[in-house]
């Protein structure tokens, strides 16, 4: 199958970058999208040109490192899948495919299609954790967690931190990512003691890192490889409002664990 690729090439963070066209005709429909790019790079190397830098690791949709905007959609045309799970059979001969990096002020481009997503790590450092003393593992069944709660937490916890939500958002907002973390931790008893502090700190960090605010457009949910629901954003907003009341009520460390927001 013969394809035209328009790939974003950028030498480094301070280069301006541009789309460069590549013709390729050695594409089999059974190739994955990343294998197709591997092939392009192989030929570039043989020609003595610089290969296209793109990020990948697991190539099975669990690590969240592949980060390509394909024809204007983060992770490409499939729903609920990462770019590494996309196969060339989804395209037809003669197609023009534009490949760009995640674009956000908070995700500076390192090279070509590779962006620096450490802003998401700093959001986690601001509050995406629980503080517990280490030691022997707690006995199973000491802490009983209802099935509903467990499933809600698991749904939120399936976020792989890829940042597609940011890439898809008109405002380059990381709200879905933060919502997933806040909902995941805030739903479980281990996460409840810090829930007021967590949500405030993570939202503050999100602004500090230069992400925009949520526009309630739900493009994030539509591209998320794990289909994280925007219902978690409503949950995040409730957590935030609740935290505001808690903080205004008591100067001491707030909160005891009680029923979840749902």
């Amino acid at each position: 199958m013969k394809l035209t690729l328009k790939i974003w090439r950028q030498q480094g963070p301070h280069d301006n970058g541009r789309l460069v066209s590549y013709e390729t005709d050695e594409v089999s429909p059974d190739m994955s999208f990343l294998e197709m790019l591997d092939g392009v790079n192989q030929r570039l190397i043989l020609k003595g040109e610089e290969p296209v830098a793109f990020e990948h690791d697991c190539r099975e949709g669990i690590c969240g490192s592949c980060s390509l905007v394909i024809n204007g959609v983060p992770h490409g045309p499939e729903r609920g899948m990462a770019a590494c799970q996309l196969y060339m059979r989804r395209f037809s001969a003669g197609d023009v495919i534009t490949i760009e990096p995640w674009r956000a002020r908070a995700f500076p481009i390192i090279k070509d299609l590779v962006v620096d997503r450490s802003a998401l790590d700093r959001l986690m450092q601001a509050g995406g954790y629980i503080s517990i003393n280490t030691g022997g593992a707690v006995d199973g069944n000491v802490l009983l967690i209802g099935k509903e709660q467990a499933e809600t937490a698991m749904d939120a916890a399936s976020c792989i931190g890829c940042g597609a939500c940011v890439a898809a958002c008109k405002n380059a907002s990381a709200t879905l990512f933060v919502a997933a973390k806040v909902s995941h931790l805030g739903t479980l008893p281990q996460g409840k003691p810090e829930r007021a502090r967590r949500v405030a700190a993570m939202m503050e960090a999100m602004d500090r890192e230069g992400f925009g605010a949520c526009g309630n457009q739900y493009e994030c949910e539509a591209v998320c490889p794990k289909r994280i629901s925007t219902r978690f954003i409503a949950m995040l907003n409730r957590e935030y409002l609740r935290a505001g009341f808690v903080a205004s009520g008591s100067p001491a460390e707030p909160d005891s664990s009680q029923a979840g927001p749902d």
Binding site: W8, L19, T98, E100, R103, A172, A213, A222
Partner: peptide, 19 residues
């Protein structure tokens, strides 16, 4: 503020659900 969050626009952009 939101506009500042994406200084470089996408060359190709497709919306799935945004009205």
């Amino acid at each position: 503020q939101n506009r500042r969050a994406r200084p470089v626009a996408y060359a190709v952009r497709e919306y799935r659900v945004a009205s």
